[in-house]
Design a binder for these strands. Structure first.
Lengths: 184, 184
DNA sequence: ATCCTGCTGAACATGGTGTTCGGTATCGTG
DNA sequence: CACGATACCGAACACCATGTTCAGCAGGAT
Protein backbone atom coordinates (compact mmCIF):
# COMPACT_ATOMS: atom_id res chain seq x y z
CA UNK A 1 0.00 0.00 0.00
CA UNK A 2 1.16 3.48 -0.87
CA UNK A 3 2.88 5.26 1.99
CA UNK A 4 0.56 8.25 1.56
CA UNK A 5 -2.44 6.03 1.92
CA UNK A 6 -1.05 4.43 5.05
CA UNK A 7 -0.25 7.77 6.60
CA UNK A 8 -3.71 9.09 5.88
CA UNK A 9 -5.39 5.97 7.20
CA UNK A 10 -3.39 6.12 10.39
CA UNK A 11 -4.13 9.81 10.81
CA UNK A 12 -7.84 9.08 10.51
CA UNK A 13 -7.69 6.27 13.05
CA UNK A 14 -5.65 8.39 15.41
CA UNK A 15 -8.02 11.33 15.12
CA UNK A 16 -11.06 9.13 15.55
CA UNK A 17 -9.84 7.29 18.62
CA UNK A 18 -8.74 10.60 20.14
CA UNK A 19 -12.22 12.03 19.58
CA UNK A 20 -13.79 8.88 20.95
CA UNK A 21 -12.00 9.52 24.21
CA UNK A 22 -13.64 12.94 24.45
CA UNK A 23 -17.10 12.45 23.05
CA UNK A 24 -19.83 9.96 22.34
CA UNK A 25 -19.42 8.35 18.97
CA UNK A 26 -22.72 9.50 17.55
CA UNK A 27 -21.89 13.10 18.47
CA UNK A 28 -18.68 13.04 16.47
CA UNK A 29 -19.03 14.51 12.99
CA UNK A 30 -17.00 13.62 9.96
CA UNK A 31 -15.89 17.25 9.86
CA UNK A 32 -14.32 16.90 13.30
CA UNK A 33 -12.41 13.83 12.21
CA UNK A 34 -11.22 15.62 9.08
CA UNK A 35 -10.10 18.66 11.03
CA UNK A 36 -8.34 16.60 13.67
CA UNK A 37 -6.64 14.36 11.13
CA UNK A 38 -5.82 17.43 9.06
CA UNK A 39 -6.87 15.93 5.76
CA UNK A 40 -9.22 16.91 2.97
CA UNK A 41 -12.87 16.01 3.01
CA UNK A 42 -12.56 14.12 -0.25
CA UNK A 43 -9.68 12.13 1.15
CA UNK A 44 -11.72 10.88 4.06
CA UNK A 45 -14.47 9.63 1.81
CA UNK A 46 -11.99 7.97 -0.52
CA UNK A 47 -10.89 5.84 2.45
CA UNK A 48 -14.22 5.17 4.16
CA UNK A 49 -17.73 5.29 2.79
CA UNK A 50 -19.28 6.42 6.05
CA UNK A 51 -18.40 7.05 9.66
CA UNK A 52 -20.00 3.70 10.42
CA UNK A 53 -17.59 2.00 8.05
CA UNK A 54 -14.73 3.70 9.85
CA UNK A 55 -15.97 2.43 13.19
CA UNK A 56 -16.28 -1.09 11.83
CA UNK A 57 -12.78 -0.93 10.37
CA UNK A 58 -11.47 0.21 13.71
CA UNK A 59 -13.21 -2.65 15.48
CA UNK A 60 -12.00 -5.12 12.89
CA UNK A 61 -8.44 -3.89 13.33
CA UNK A 62 -8.62 -4.33 17.08
CA UNK A 63 -10.14 -7.79 16.78
CA UNK A 64 -7.65 -8.88 14.15
CA UNK A 65 -4.94 -7.95 16.57
CA UNK A 66 -6.51 -9.38 19.70
CA UNK A 67 -7.84 -12.63 18.36
CA UNK A 68 -5.20 -13.47 15.77
CA UNK A 69 -2.44 -12.94 18.32
CA UNK A 70 -4.40 -15.27 20.53
CA UNK A 71 -4.56 -17.90 17.82
CA UNK A 72 -0.88 -17.53 16.97
CA UNK A 73 0.02 -18.13 20.54
CA UNK A 74 -2.21 -21.14 20.61
CA UNK A 75 -0.59 -22.79 17.61
CA UNK A 76 2.91 -21.82 18.76
CA UNK A 77 2.69 -23.58 22.08
CA UNK A 78 1.85 -27.09 21.13
CA UNK A 79 0.23 -28.31 24.32
CA UNK A 80 -2.68 -26.34 23.01
CA UNK A 81 -6.05 -27.31 21.54
CA UNK A 82 -7.53 -27.55 24.98
CA UNK A 83 -5.26 -26.14 27.62
CA UNK A 84 -8.12 -24.29 29.17
CA UNK A 85 -10.52 -21.56 28.37
CA UNK A 86 -9.08 -19.57 31.22
CA UNK A 87 -5.66 -19.15 29.67
CA UNK A 88 -7.25 -18.01 26.45
CA UNK A 89 -9.40 -15.50 28.25
CA UNK A 90 -6.47 -14.07 30.12
CA UNK A 91 -4.53 -13.65 26.92
CA UNK A 92 -7.38 -11.94 25.18
CA UNK A 93 -7.55 -9.56 28.12
CA UNK A 94 -3.83 -8.89 27.81
CA UNK A 95 -4.22 -7.86 24.21
CA UNK A 96 -7.32 -5.84 24.90
CA UNK A 97 -5.43 -3.91 27.54
CA UNK A 98 -3.46 -2.13 24.83
CA UNK A 99 -6.69 -0.69 23.49
CA UNK A 100 -8.42 0.04 26.77
CA UNK A 101 -8.60 3.81 26.38
CA UNK A 102 -9.89 3.62 22.83
CA UNK A 103 -12.38 0.97 23.96
CA UNK A 104 -13.70 3.28 26.62
CA UNK A 105 -14.62 5.73 23.87
CA UNK A 106 -16.04 3.08 21.61
CA UNK A 107 -18.13 1.47 24.30
CA UNK A 108 -19.64 4.56 25.85
CA UNK A 109 -22.66 5.95 24.10
CA UNK A 110 -24.46 4.33 21.26
CA UNK A 111 -21.54 3.03 19.29
CA UNK A 112 -20.98 0.26 21.80
CA UNK A 113 -23.51 -1.91 20.03
CA UNK A 114 -21.33 -2.16 16.93
CA UNK A 115 -18.29 -3.27 18.84
CA UNK A 116 -20.28 -5.56 21.06
CA UNK A 117 -21.94 -7.38 18.19
CA UNK A 118 -18.52 -8.11 16.69
CA UNK A 119 -17.19 -9.13 20.05
CA UNK A 120 -20.14 -11.38 20.87
CA UNK A 121 -19.76 -13.25 17.64
CA UNK A 122 -16.10 -13.97 18.25
CA UNK A 123 -16.68 -14.96 21.85
CA UNK A 124 -19.59 -17.22 21.04
CA UNK A 125 -17.25 -19.27 18.83
CA UNK A 126 -14.73 -19.38 21.62
CA UNK A 127 -17.12 -20.34 24.38
CA UNK A 128 -19.42 -22.69 22.53
CA UNK A 129 -17.26 -25.81 22.99
CA UNK A 130 -16.73 -25.26 26.68
CA UNK A 131 -20.14 -24.49 28.10
CA UNK A 132 -20.73 -26.52 31.24
CA UNK A 133 -23.50 -29.07 31.11
CA UNK A 134 -26.07 -30.30 33.58
CA UNK A 135 -26.86 -26.86 34.95
CA UNK A 136 -30.59 -27.16 34.27
CA UNK A 137 -30.46 -24.10 32.05
CA UNK A 138 -30.76 -24.09 28.25
CA UNK A 139 -27.38 -24.17 26.51
CA UNK A 140 -28.63 -21.27 24.47
CA UNK A 141 -29.14 -19.16 27.54
CA UNK A 142 -25.91 -20.24 29.13
CA UNK A 143 -23.79 -19.40 26.11
CA UNK A 144 -25.41 -15.99 25.90
CA UNK A 145 -24.75 -15.51 29.58
CA UNK A 146 -21.06 -16.33 29.28
CA UNK A 147 -20.56 -14.15 26.25
CA UNK A 148 -22.43 -11.19 27.71
CA UNK A 149 -20.73 -11.51 31.05
CA UNK A 150 -17.36 -11.35 29.42
CA UNK A 151 -18.34 -8.39 27.27
CA UNK A 152 -19.62 -6.53 30.28
CA UNK A 153 -16.52 -7.44 32.20
CA UNK A 154 -14.47 -5.73 29.53
CA UNK A 155 -16.77 -2.73 29.58
CA UNK A 156 -16.39 -2.57 33.34
CA UNK A 157 -12.65 -2.83 32.98
CA UNK A 158 -12.51 0.26 30.76
CA UNK A 159 -13.82 2.18 33.77
CA UNK A 160 -11.55 0.47 36.31
CA UNK A 161 -8.26 0.26 34.52
CA UNK A 162 -6.23 -0.23 37.68
CA UNK A 163 -6.69 -3.99 37.53
CA UNK A 164 -4.33 -6.33 35.74
CA UNK A 165 -5.57 -8.79 33.10
CA UNK A 166 -5.03 -11.73 35.47
CA UNK A 167 -7.15 -10.08 38.15
CA UNK A 168 -9.95 -9.32 35.73
CA UNK A 169 -9.80 -12.88 34.51
CA UNK A 170 -10.07 -14.06 38.12
CA UNK A 171 -13.11 -11.84 38.70
CA UNK A 172 -14.76 -13.20 35.60
CA UNK A 173 -14.20 -16.80 36.57
CA UNK A 174 -15.17 -16.02 40.13
CA UNK A 175 -18.74 -15.45 38.98
CA UNK A 176 -18.91 -18.34 36.54
CA UNK A 177 -20.50 -21.44 38.00
CA UNK A 178 -19.43 -24.85 36.84
CA UNK A 179 -16.04 -23.83 35.52
CA UNK A 180 -12.90 -25.18 37.13
CA UNK A 181 -9.79 -23.02 37.56
CA UNK A 182 -8.22 -25.00 34.73
CA UNK A 183 -10.76 -26.92 32.76
CA UNK A 184 -8.39 -29.03 30.71
CA UNK B 1 -54.77 16.10 30.59
CA UNK B 2 -56.75 17.05 27.52
CA UNK B 3 -58.21 14.09 25.66
CA UNK B 4 -56.68 15.37 22.42
CA UNK B 5 -53.26 15.43 23.99
CA UNK B 6 -53.64 11.94 25.35
CA UNK B 7 -54.76 10.59 22.00
CA UNK B 8 -51.87 12.22 20.20
CA UNK B 9 -49.36 11.02 22.74
CA UNK B 10 -50.66 7.49 22.49
CA UNK B 11 -50.62 7.63 18.70
CA UNK B 12 -46.98 8.69 18.79
CA UNK B 13 -46.03 5.92 21.20
CA UNK B 14 -47.93 3.38 19.15
CA UNK B 15 -46.33 4.51 15.91
CA UNK B 16 -42.89 4.57 17.44
CA UNK B 17 -43.05 1.13 19.00
CA UNK B 18 -44.47 -0.25 15.76
CA UNK B 19 -41.56 1.24 13.83
CA UNK B 20 -39.12 -0.06 16.42
CA UNK B 21 -40.30 -3.55 15.63
CA UNK B 22 -39.39 -3.06 11.98
CA UNK B 23 -36.27 -0.97 12.03
CA UNK B 24 -33.29 0.10 14.07
CA UNK B 25 -34.03 3.11 16.19
CA UNK B 26 -31.39 5.36 14.69
CA UNK B 27 -32.76 4.63 11.21
CA UNK B 28 -36.22 5.82 12.14
CA UNK B 29 -36.88 9.42 11.16
CA UNK B 30 -39.26 11.82 12.82
CA UNK B 31 -41.10 12.03 9.52
CA UNK B 32 -41.82 8.29 9.63
CA UNK B 33 -43.23 8.59 13.12
CA UNK B 34 -45.38 11.53 12.05
CA UNK B 35 -46.70 9.69 9.00
CA UNK B 36 -47.40 6.53 10.94
CA UNK B 37 -49.09 8.37 13.78
CA UNK B 38 -50.91 10.50 11.23
CA UNK B 39 -50.26 13.79 12.99
CA UNK B 40 -48.76 17.12 12.02
CA UNK B 41 -45.09 17.84 12.25
CA UNK B 42 -45.67 20.72 14.63
CA UNK B 43 -47.73 18.51 16.87
CA UNK B 44 -44.95 16.04 17.30
CA UNK B 45 -42.50 18.70 18.33
CA UNK B 46 -44.98 20.22 20.75
CA UNK B 47 -45.02 16.87 22.56
CA UNK B 48 -41.35 15.90 22.37
CA UNK B 49 -38.30 18.06 21.83
CA UNK B 50 -36.38 15.36 20.00
CA UNK B 51 -36.62 11.72 19.02
CA UNK B 52 -34.27 10.98 21.87
CA UNK B 53 -36.70 12.56 24.31
CA UNK B 54 -39.44 10.36 22.91
CA UNK B 55 -37.35 7.27 23.44
CA UNK B 56 -36.61 8.29 27.00
CA UNK B 57 -40.27 8.97 27.68
CA UNK B 58 -41.12 5.56 26.33
CA UNK B 59 -38.55 3.92 28.57
CA UNK B 60 -39.68 5.94 31.55
CA UNK B 61 -43.28 4.89 30.94
CA UNK B 62 -42.33 1.24 30.84
CA UNK B 63 -40.22 1.53 33.98
CA UNK B 64 -42.87 3.44 35.85
CA UNK B 65 -45.21 0.61 35.13
CA UNK B 66 -42.84 -2.24 35.82
CA UNK B 67 -41.14 -0.93 38.92
CA UNK B 68 -43.98 0.92 40.56
CA UNK B 69 -46.28 -2.08 40.21
CA UNK B 70 -43.51 -4.04 41.81
CA UNK B 71 -43.32 -1.66 44.76
CA UNK B 72 -47.11 -1.56 45.16
CA UNK B 73 -47.21 -5.27 45.43
CA UNK B 74 -44.41 -5.24 47.93
CA UNK B 75 -46.12 -2.80 50.26
CA UNK B 76 -49.51 -4.47 49.82
CA UNK B 77 -48.39 -7.85 51.04
CA UNK B 78 -47.03 -7.14 54.44
CA UNK B 79 -44.69 -10.04 54.90
CA UNK B 80 -42.48 -8.06 52.62
CA UNK B 81 -39.36 -5.96 53.19
CA UNK B 82 -37.16 -8.96 52.64
CA UNK B 83 -39.06 -11.88 51.27
CA UNK B 84 -36.36 -12.52 48.75
CA UNK B 85 -34.76 -10.97 45.78
CA UNK B 86 -36.00 -13.86 43.71
CA UNK B 87 -39.68 -13.04 44.16
CA UNK B 88 -39.01 -9.46 43.20
CA UNK B 89 -37.13 -10.50 40.11
CA UNK B 90 -39.89 -12.82 39.00
CA UNK B 91 -42.46 -10.09 39.39
CA UNK B 92 -40.41 -7.62 37.42
CA UNK B 93 -40.20 -10.22 34.68
CA UNK B 94 -43.97 -10.65 34.78
CA UNK B 95 -44.51 -6.97 34.18
CA UNK B 96 -41.82 -6.78 31.54
CA UNK B 97 -43.54 -9.57 29.67
CA UNK B 98 -46.32 -7.19 28.66
CA UNK B 99 -43.78 -5.06 26.83
CA UNK B 100 -41.68 -7.82 25.34
CA UNK B 101 -42.35 -7.02 21.70
CA UNK B 102 -41.73 -3.32 22.14
CA UNK B 103 -38.59 -4.15 24.08
CA UNK B 104 -37.32 -6.23 21.23
CA UNK B 105 -37.45 -3.13 19.04
CA UNK B 106 -35.95 -0.88 21.65
CA UNK B 107 -33.10 -3.21 22.47
CA UNK B 108 -32.02 -4.11 18.96
CA UNK B 109 -29.75 -1.64 17.29
CA UNK B 110 -28.21 1.38 18.89
CA UNK B 111 -31.13 2.52 20.98
CA UNK B 112 -30.57 -0.31 23.43
CA UNK B 113 -28.01 1.77 25.28
CA UNK B 114 -30.64 4.30 26.36
CA UNK B 115 -32.97 1.71 27.75
CA UNK B 116 -30.16 -0.25 29.33
CA UNK B 117 -28.72 2.72 31.15
CA UNK B 118 -32.15 3.39 32.71
CA UNK B 119 -32.57 -0.25 33.51
CA UNK B 120 -29.13 -0.62 35.02
CA UNK B 121 -29.71 2.27 37.36
CA UNK B 122 -32.94 0.82 38.68
CA UNK B 123 -31.50 -2.65 39.04
CA UNK B 124 -28.39 -1.44 40.80
CA UNK B 125 -30.61 -0.02 43.54
CA UNK B 126 -32.47 -3.27 43.74
CA UNK B 127 -29.44 -5.54 43.84
CA UNK B 128 -27.09 -3.43 45.93
CA UNK B 129 -28.40 -4.64 49.32
CA UNK B 130 -28.32 -8.30 48.38
CA UNK B 131 -24.94 -8.86 46.78
CA UNK B 132 -23.33 -11.96 48.22
CA UNK B 133 -20.15 -11.46 50.20
CA UNK B 134 -16.95 -13.42 50.54
CA UNK B 135 -16.66 -14.27 46.87
CA UNK B 136 -13.17 -12.83 46.52
CA UNK B 137 -14.39 -10.42 43.86
CA UNK B 138 -14.82 -6.65 44.30
CA UNK B 139 -18.38 -5.69 45.28
CA UNK B 140 -18.21 -3.16 42.51
CA UNK B 141 -17.58 -5.85 39.93
CA UNK B 142 -20.13 -8.19 41.40
CA UNK B 143 -22.92 -5.64 41.40
CA UNK B 144 -22.15 -4.77 37.79
CA UNK B 145 -22.17 -8.45 36.96
CA UNK B 146 -25.59 -9.03 38.52
CA UNK B 147 -27.12 -5.99 36.89
CA UNK B 148 -25.68 -6.72 33.46
CA UNK B 149 -26.59 -10.38 33.63
CA UNK B 150 -30.18 -9.52 34.36
CA UNK B 151 -30.28 -6.94 31.58
CA UNK B 152 -28.86 -9.42 29.13
CA UNK B 153 -31.28 -12.04 30.34
CA UNK B 154 -34.12 -9.73 29.43
CA UNK B 155 -32.55 -9.00 26.06
CA UNK B 156 -32.24 -12.73 25.46
CA UNK B 157 -35.84 -13.22 26.49
CA UNK B 158 -37.05 -10.79 23.82
CA UNK B 159 -35.63 -13.27 21.28
CA UNK B 160 -36.95 -16.37 23.05
CA UNK B 161 -40.41 -15.36 24.11
CA UNK B 162 -41.63 -18.91 24.55
CA UNK B 163 -40.42 -19.02 28.14
CA UNK B 164 -42.52 -18.01 31.13
CA UNK B 165 -41.31 -15.42 33.64
CA UNK B 166 -40.75 -18.10 36.27
CA UNK B 167 -38.57 -20.10 33.91
CA UNK B 168 -36.51 -17.08 32.95
CA UNK B 169 -36.11 -16.26 36.61
CA UNK B 170 -34.89 -19.79 37.22
CA UNK B 171 -32.35 -19.50 34.40
CA UNK B 172 -31.07 -16.26 35.83
CA UNK B 173 -30.65 -17.67 39.30
CA UNK B 174 -29.19 -20.84 37.86
CA UNK B 175 -26.14 -18.87 36.78
CA UNK B 176 -25.83 -16.75 39.90
CA UNK B 177 -23.36 -18.14 42.42
CA UNK B 178 -23.89 -17.54 46.12
CA UNK B 179 -27.61 -16.90 45.94
CA UNK B 180 -30.01 -19.24 47.64
CA UNK B 181 -33.36 -20.18 46.09
CA UNK B 182 -35.01 -17.97 48.70
CA UNK B 183 -32.53 -15.68 50.35
CA UNK B 184 -34.70 -14.44 53.19
C1' DA C 1 11.31 12.81 -16.78
C1' DT C 2 6.83 11.33 -16.85
C1' DC C 3 3.05 8.84 -15.62
C1' DC C 4 0.05 7.41 -12.10
C1' DT C 5 -2.16 7.73 -8.04
C1' DG C 6 -3.51 9.90 -4.01
C1' DC C 7 -4.54 14.38 -1.78
C1' DT C 8 -6.93 18.96 -1.90
C1' DG C 9 -10.70 22.29 -1.20
C1' DA C 10 -14.49 24.58 -2.82
C1' DA C 11 -18.93 24.00 -4.45
C1' DC C 12 -23.05 21.38 -4.70
C1' DA C 13 -27.20 18.27 -4.06
C1' DT C 14 -29.60 15.77 -0.65
C1' DG C 15 -32.02 14.80 3.37
C1' DG C 16 -33.13 15.13 8.23
C1' DT C 17 -33.99 18.45 12.09
C1' DG C 18 -36.34 21.68 14.58
C1' DT C 19 -38.99 26.33 14.21
C1' DT C 20 -42.34 29.74 12.74
C1' DC C 21 -46.83 31.28 11.56
C1' DG C 22 -51.55 31.89 10.19
C1' DG C 23 -55.39 29.28 10.38
C1' DT C 24 -58.76 25.49 11.89
C1' DA C 25 -60.96 22.20 15.00
C1' DT C 26 -61.92 20.60 19.47
C1' DC C 27 -62.09 20.93 24.38
C1' DG C 28 -63.86 22.43 29.02
C1' DT C 29 -66.61 25.73 31.27
C1' DG C 30 -70.07 29.31 32.37
C1' DC D 1 -75.22 27.26 23.52
C1' DA D 2 -71.43 30.29 23.33
C1' DC D 3 -66.95 31.47 24.01
C1' DG D 4 -62.26 31.57 25.27
C1' DA D 5 -58.43 28.54 25.60
C1' DT D 6 -55.78 25.20 23.73
C1' DA D 7 -54.39 21.61 20.80
C1' DC D 8 -53.74 20.43 16.02
C1' DC D 9 -52.53 21.37 11.18
C1' DG D 10 -49.27 21.92 7.17
C1' DA D 11 -46.46 24.59 4.42
C1' DA D 12 -42.48 27.11 4.39
C1' DC D 13 -38.04 28.07 6.27
C1' DA D 14 -33.20 28.12 8.18
C1' DC D 15 -29.80 25.05 9.60
C1' DC D 16 -26.54 21.47 9.63
C1' DA D 17 -24.32 17.09 8.50
C1' DT D 18 -23.65 13.93 4.79
C1' DG D 19 -21.71 12.38 0.76
C1' DT D 20 -20.34 13.69 -4.30
C1' DT D 21 -18.12 16.13 -8.03
C1' DC D 22 -14.38 18.27 -10.36
C1' DA D 23 -10.34 20.55 -11.74
C1' DG D 24 -5.89 21.01 -10.14
C1' DC D 25 -1.82 19.92 -7.39
C1' DA D 26 1.88 17.05 -5.07
C1' DG D 27 4.28 12.85 -4.09
C1' DG D 28 5.74 8.27 -5.35
C1' DA D 29 7.17 4.59 -8.76
C1' DT D 30 9.84 3.16 -12.80
Amino acid sequence: MDRRQRKTREAIFRAFTALLREERCDRITVQQIIDRADIGRTTFYSHFDTKDALLKSLCADIFDHVFSAELDRESAHDFSHDHGTRARITHILCHLQEHLDALNGILSGESGAVFMSFFREKLAELFAPSIPSGTGVPDDYLLNHLVCSFCETVRWWTKHTQYAPEEVSAFFFGTMPGWRENDA
